[in-house]
Design a protein around this nucleic acid. Structure first.
Lengths: 202, 202
DNA sequence: AGTTGACATGTCAGAAGTTACATAGTGAGA
DNA sequence: TCTCACTATGTAACTTCTGACATGTCAACT
């Protein structure tokens, strides 16, 4: 008789994507479509998902009682659903946050460097030169965003969007790291000799 | 009559893991078991795989003609197979290497920071303090490895294991970035006020 | 009048990745 | 002698993620 149906939240598992969506919903209610846009930045620098993954996940979160939705008549053939996080969803999120993460990062770019000398040196050097240039552009962009956020007081942990600033700072650190490394690697491959590990250009 | 069986390598797709294994095999022949050990470091800092994924992948690479295997009587119920990369496998690897990677990195640690203020500040501060300490340990370890490699001339692009050194340097950059960021974030959460973005401790 | 792009939600097939199950020899140490 | 860890290879069930298919409105531009 006891609890055969629905939200026994204590025993629910939850995927990383589920918690990512809950995190977004702590900023306020949103539709699946809006969440699809919002995972692009700044979360998107470290976690991405397509709408085809987000919609089913929202259904699962809803079944678990972690989010609640209200329907409005939408533009398309189906009703538009606006989701909000529930108290039990927030509790689940808070429990997940304090678990030390174990998953290793993945980087195809770094993986390719492992076999860099198996390919044409000029082509590989060009690859990492492009990467260094790309990181320069991204860095300039992120720094501007960060400056705007600081002006808005978002660097204060008391600010409701402090998390956006924290993630952005990791983005800046990452791009700086990539920039230095890619420049060094490109120089090695271009010259065919050990290069000095240089400072970021002024 | 024409090519219904096997290695029309030109049209083969290949997964990232497949190319990772080919990269390892450019260092010399190895068994599935050895490859499972070898993905742990330094590749493992940026790409991991279990043996349950590696064995089937080796079978696919073999079917594509990208690796060849010889069997010796092994300890267990099955024969031990030693794999070597074939010329067509090397060609496929070389083609893949020069394609600019597009996949975004993923980091659960950074994702949690996005919702950091939703959880208990003391617990979250502890999480990032631990992370900073962990990165200090890893950094010391990696720096030693790098020093050993430089002494062996592995920082020269002409060295057959230059790739190991290149990947390790990215590991060092990454840990430095994580260290600075985690220390800053822990300070913010601990004090509840904006913290200065500090230099790595001496 | 027609096209493009944003808004909006969903499904399906398949690839990629994790966890657990299954088997078996060898050598070191308790 | 027994247990443990290492060597060694595989399968099965499941979750996660991607790419393609599918539908339909509305506003702006051509």
């Amino acid at each position: 008789m006891a609890g055969a149906d629905g939200d026994d939240s204590a025993s629910m598992a939850g995927s990383t994507l589920g918690y990512a969506l809950l995190s977004l919903l702590t900023r306020g209610p949103a539709t699946g479509y809006q969440l699809t846009q919002q995972v692009k930045a700044p979360i998107g620098h470290f976690w991405t998902a397509r709408h085809s993954q987000i919609y089913p996940e929202l259904a699962r979160l809803s079944a678990a009682g972690w989010v609640a939705s209200v329907e409005q008549a939408g533009p398309g053939p189906r009703a538009k659903k606006t989701y909000a996080i529930t108290p039990s969803g927030l509790a689940a999120l808070r429990a997940w946050l304090v678990i030390p993460p174990t998953a290793q990062p993945r980087s195809e770019t770094t993986l390719k460097a492992y076999a860099a000398t198996s390919a044409d040196p000029a082509a590989m050097a060009a690859l990492y030169t492009d990467l260094a240039e790309r990181s320069t552009r991204l860095l300039a962009e992120y720094e501007q965003d960060a400056e705007r956020m600081r002006a808005a007081g978002q660097d204060d942990p008391a600010h409701p969007r402090f998390g956006n600033y924290a993630v952005l700072l990791m983005g800046i650190e990452s791009q700086r790291a990539v920039h230095r490394w890619a420049r060094w690697l490109a120089a090695c491959l271009r010259t065919g000799r050990p290069a000095a590990y240089g400072e970021p250009e002024g």
